[in-house]
Write a protein that binds this DNA or RNA. Structure first.
Lengths: 234, 234
DNA sequence: CGCGTTTTTGATCTAACTCAAGCTTTGTGG
DNA sequence: CCACAAAGCTTGAGTTAGATCAAAAACGCG
């Protein structure tokens, strides 16, 4: 990962002095926090990858999102400071803590607008994720996942066509609400179509346009028709 | 809806003077805003019900959540002020605008902590919704929906056992990622089991415990097994 | 090299969708 | 106030996408 761009991402929210004093490095498999933990603030991922997930009593997990450089973690605890999710490091990561007091105390070093902006972006992603889970075919979910990852790469100045994903197949499955076997099969299909090339976690996108087309397919769900809403406009 | 409690909810975030000057009443079918609109802030629902949803090019909609008294709307636009969602009134509603400038300018009348708290709660709900969409049976999704609605009623000082839901079946279907027919069938099943009683939008929960049991059933998905994560703890 | 983990492929099964149709409720105009 | 139309809800029958079960192949670390 590129340290220069990571540093810039952090700076946009916090003054360097805030970041520097609260940074730590975690390794693959490390738990950043788990459900029920008391958190002192919100974490920002500077490098590496962290998976954020919820677990049920029965031990099943649902992956909420994969946090990459620039992403915030632990937002759900902003209220009472108690985390409702678990965070595990997938790839050696550098994360910094933004204390809740910093967020609320409007010191000069903290950019509340940029912070709100990140929250809004995060919520937007969650909505899209939710849309994918509710009304899309397995093939489309996977295509969307790859497109999103590719976009993320591009936004971090890395190659949007060739990358190594930090998660294993079952993580992808858990994120997309599919069985591992389905993820494997759909990925195989994309390969046969010449749209991507894969070798375990090494992914190469050969035809971004076609992949985008699949991810945006207009076959979302000709099921339930919406109520006609178009009446007066406030 | 109970005006006294609604007022109290608003007051916890904004000083009354802020709320009073930005309040308006909207009727069923009214559009509060739609995707692409420029918003001047975040809306708070004081009474009534508003549905928040995204639409795809093909006209399908995905309902993100139903906003009830005390809920915030338009959080996704906190960054650039552009809404990524549509908001339509289901039940005559009183909403007030919290200008973005109020949020960012830390005036005495604005409680940033309470605001963050609401954001955190909202994110928690979204995660739960997402979990339901990804790994649960139709029956469990519906049970969860009813439980959540019931909890909301209780938190607003209304009956948790008997209420009139503000949305039609297809809205519930769109929210839960199911076909209308499935919602209808599952609701019929709950009735046959003596757990609820229904008459169109009038719902009576006869056995809250059993409904909760269904909504929390431990059959979430014995599908994909999670990677063993339990290693070092930060 | 050997063993546990991850990935893949094949065969079967099932929950929920789709299609179709009837019924109930609500709203509108005469 | 009734008739009719539109919207909403329900039930039945058949189909299917993706889950589950089973097992083999590929990887990678000690």
């Amino acid at each position: 990962m590129n340290n220069v761009s990571n540093y810039q991402i952090s700076k946009s929210i916090c003054h360097p002095s805030i970041v520097d004093t609260n940074t730590s490095v975690l390794h693959e498999g490390d738990l950043l926090f788990r459900m029920g933990d008391k958190l002192d603030g919100v974490y920002m991922v500077n490098s590496g990858a962290v998976k954020l997930f919820a677990t049920t009593e029965s031990g099943d997990e649902h992956i909420i999102r994969f946090c990459m450089p620039g992403d915030l973690l632990g937002l759900g605890s902003l209220g009472d400071g108690i985390s409702r999710t678990n965070a595990v490091v997938l790839d050696i990561a550098n994360v910094s803590l933004i204390p809740i007091s910093t967020v609320l105390s409007r010191s000069d070093g903290f950019n509340l607008g940029a912070f709100m902006d990140k929250i809004a972006t995060t919520m937007g992603h969650e909505s899209e994720h939710s849309l994918m889970l509710s009304r899309c075919t397995a093939g489309r979910r996977l295509a969307w996942f790859l497109m999103e990852f590719s976009r993320g790469q591009a936004s971090r100045g890395l190659s949007p066509n060739k990358f190594i994903v930090p998660m294993i197949r079952s993580d992808i499955a858990l994120f997309l609400g599919l069985a591992v076997e389905t993820v494997s099969r759909e990925l195989a299909r994309l390969c046969k179509q010449g749209i991507v090339k894969k070798n375990l976690r090494h992914i190469e996108i050969l035809d971004l346009d076609r992949l985008r087309a699949i991810s945006e397919a207009e076959d979302v769900a000709p099921k339930t028709k919406a109520r006609s809403n178009s009446s007066s406009y406030h």
